[in-house]
Nucleic acid binder design. Structure first.
Length: 331
DNA sequence: ATGGTTTTTACTGCGTC
DNA sequence: GACGCGGTAAAAACCAT
């Protein structure tokens, strides 16, 4: 209730401020001085207008900059506390989102003075209990382990932070919906990672995932399907183009070949020959065909190696690709 | 469980270096 | 003769029913 009211207030205040003057927060940013490319005079950033201008000749060096300051203003610290809507960033990578209390290990007080023996003893007890409460029930401990697992696999596969975040979220949801009983933590964690990698557009094949995971492929596919179905995750079939860069770089192909491969895949989509076929095979075939078209030598077996697809599949797909391409050219 | 589709395995023939 | 390539048939894997 009071939240919404404060918000509206903030916004009205902001509008009035914009038209008037520059707030205190921006005065600090103004001090960032460089020299003008025209007259080498001092540059001034005007946060309210979102521009960087030369103080001497008035040349606008940069416009539409982003004002990262708050959109409200406060006149004293109490007001600031009241209006601020943010705190420390949270992260799904920690089982408690990094929001729980953390007691440091140093036996010093806030001023850096050593603690007395009695105080040290107290602190030690506090740490012990804090840790116990933090990982209180089985779900929390479960989550802690799973997130560790996700993190380990993600780094082994070179997946970026955001994929891990998404995987954590998926896992949390699975946990919240009681999907875990009867399934292993590793299995669900792996499935979550697999799903998030695909959602993020950086798919890893089941084989790759399986290599870094502790679960069998069969269990993985089963839990994956289960999780996707139960959580109603919308994961569209992997786009072959997403594999192209990886294959191309594994094979040391030129950018030109990579571009060519994408083009072939676009044509293939036009001709609608890609439905039902494995995206990986299609990607592999396009890479192979592109290498041929740009006169770069790669053998079918090399491509099949890096893509983990059989040569036969590459042959079949790439035949279709060229047909579609030819049809596209003459149409 | 079953049937249809796709992928893989295994094998063969052809041309080239 | 080894290698890359294209093709085929049968087996295996996968998916929806």
């Amino acid at each position: 209730m009071s939240d919404t009211r404060t918000r509206e207030q903030d916004e009205t205040e902001e509008r009035t401020r914009r038209s008037e003057s520059v707030s205190e927060a921006e005065t600090e940013e103004q001090s960032e001085v460089q020299s003008c490319p025209e007259c080498s005079g001092n540059l001034v950033t005007d946060g309210a207008r979102g521009e960087t201008v030369c103080a001497d000749c008035g040349l606008v060096v940069d416009e539409d900059s982003i004002d990262r300051g708050p959109e409200w203003r406060a006149f004293d610290s109490a007001e600031r506390d009241q209006k601020s809507r943010v705190g420390a960033p949270t992260t799904n990578l920690m089982h408690d989102k990094g929001l729980s209390t953390n007691i440091g290990w140093r036996n010093k007080d806030a001023y850096g003075n050593s603690l007395s023996a009695r105080q040290r003893e107290q602190m030690q007890r506090l740490r012990t209990w804090n840790e116990r409460f933090r990982t209180r029930d089985s779900k929390e401990r479960n989550l802690k382990q799973a997130l560790g697992e996700i993190d380990r696999m993600a780094s082994a596969l070179g997946l970026p932070e955001n994929v891990r975040e998404t995987a954590s979220v998926i896992y949390r949801r699975a946990l919240a919906e009681d999907l875990l009983p009867g399934r292993s933590i590793e299995g669900v964690a792996t499935a979550a990672l697999y799903a998030s990698a695909r959602q993020a557009g950086t798919p890893r094949s089941l084989d790759e995932i399986e290599r870094v995971s502790r679960v069998e492929k069969m269990e993985l596919t089963r839990t994956y399907r289960y999780v996707v179905r139960e959580l109603k995750l919308e994961i569209e079939p992997a786009d072959p183009e997403q594999y192209v860069p990886r294959f191309a770089s594994d094979l040391d192909l030129s950018d030109e070949a990579e571009r060519q491969a994408r083009q072939l895949l676009k044509n293939a989509k036009e001709a609608a020959i890609h439905s039902g076929k494995s995206p990986v095979g299609l990607a592999a075939a396009s890479v192979y065909a592109a290498a041929l078209l740009t006169n770069e030598k790669v053998t079918q077996s090399e491509v099949s190696d890096v893509a983990n697809v059989s040569e036969v599949t590459i042959r079949n797909r790439y035949k279709e690709l060229l047909e579609a391409d030819g049809a596209g050219l003459f149409a």
